[in-house]
């Protein structure tokens, strides 16, 4: 087990190694992941929680099959949502693709190996999703969408911010909770899968847990999270204050 994992580590050292990531298991996993996205979204709606968690499948594929497989899953997931539920989902496919891509890249850098690293990944995914949703929100919807995020945008605009800053700020406010929870749930699922199953997928080495978590590492991670949050607040302040 260990040997195969090490061998695959060598092969996939570059995250641009695309061909290897798309084996039959990946292709079969994709529709299941897309269905997981929708079904988990449905469960969360039943529980009336203030998150969507509708990209767990995308993150799973990104982590275990590489960034490009994750990006493709995200893009196709939104396309299929558009084909079956409401064409309103179609313009958002780049955001879903970015979520898959970034979660794959995070996993390749070893950020899916313990829970606190996963929190960091979730935060990075949220930042990427927020940034990529801004141009779509502006170009397609003129900035204010008809949902909870749109309400926050509207509030910020009313209190004197420019529309671009308001869209940025409201995305940054809403994304992290959703994406960190998504990443943690995906991590919990991956931990529950058997090693035999994981070994059939392209990148099992991405979820091998660290044997021992040293105290120093944990402190560094907490520091990184705090810094990221401070940076985000700083960024928010600059963005909203500039108007």
């Amino acid at each position: 087990m260990r040997e195969t994992a090490m061998r695959s580590q060598k092969q996939s050292s570059s995250w641009l190694n695309i061909g290897k990531d798309f084996n039959t298991m990946t292709w079969v996993l994709m529709p299941v992941a897309i269905a997981i996205n929708m079904a988990v979204g449905q469960i969360v709606a039943t529980l009336r929680l203030p998150v969507y968690l509708d990209s767990i499948g995308t993150v799973l594929v990104g982590v275990i099959c590489g960034p490009w497989a994750g990006a493709l899953t995200g893009a196709l997931a939104n396309t299929i949502l558009g084909l079956t539920i409401n064409p309103d989902f179609l313009p958002w496919w780049p955001v879903a693709a970015i979520i898959g891509l970034v979660s794959g890249i995070c996993a390749n850098y070893g950020l899916f190996k313990s829970w606190w690293k996963v929190v960091v990944s979730g935060f990075i995914i949220a930042l990427a999703a927020a940034i990529s949703s801004v141009p779509i929100s502006l170009l397609v919807y003129g900035g204010i969408t008809a949902g909870g995020t749109g309400m926050i945008t509207a509030f910020l605009v009313e209190s004197g911010r420019g529309i671009v800053q308001a869209v940025f700020a409201s995305s940054f406010l809403t994304e992290p909770v959703d994406k960190i929870t998504t990443a943690l749930l995906a991590f919990a699922i991956l931990q529950g899968l058997s090693k035999r199953f994981l070994a059939r997928l392209p990148r099992p080495e991405n979820v091998e847990t660290d044997e021992k978590i040293s105290r120093n590492q944990l402190l560094i991670a907490v520091g990184v999270v705090v810094l990221l949050i401070l940076f985000a607040i700083f960024l928010l302040g600059r963005l909203t204050g500039a108007a």
Partner: peptide
């Protein structure tokens, strides 16, 4: 394959 089998799996999964 991904698109068509998604269309079949989604109702089952729901």
């Amino acid at each position: 394959y991904v698109v068509i089998s998604s269309l079949q799996i989604i109702p089952q999964m729901q």
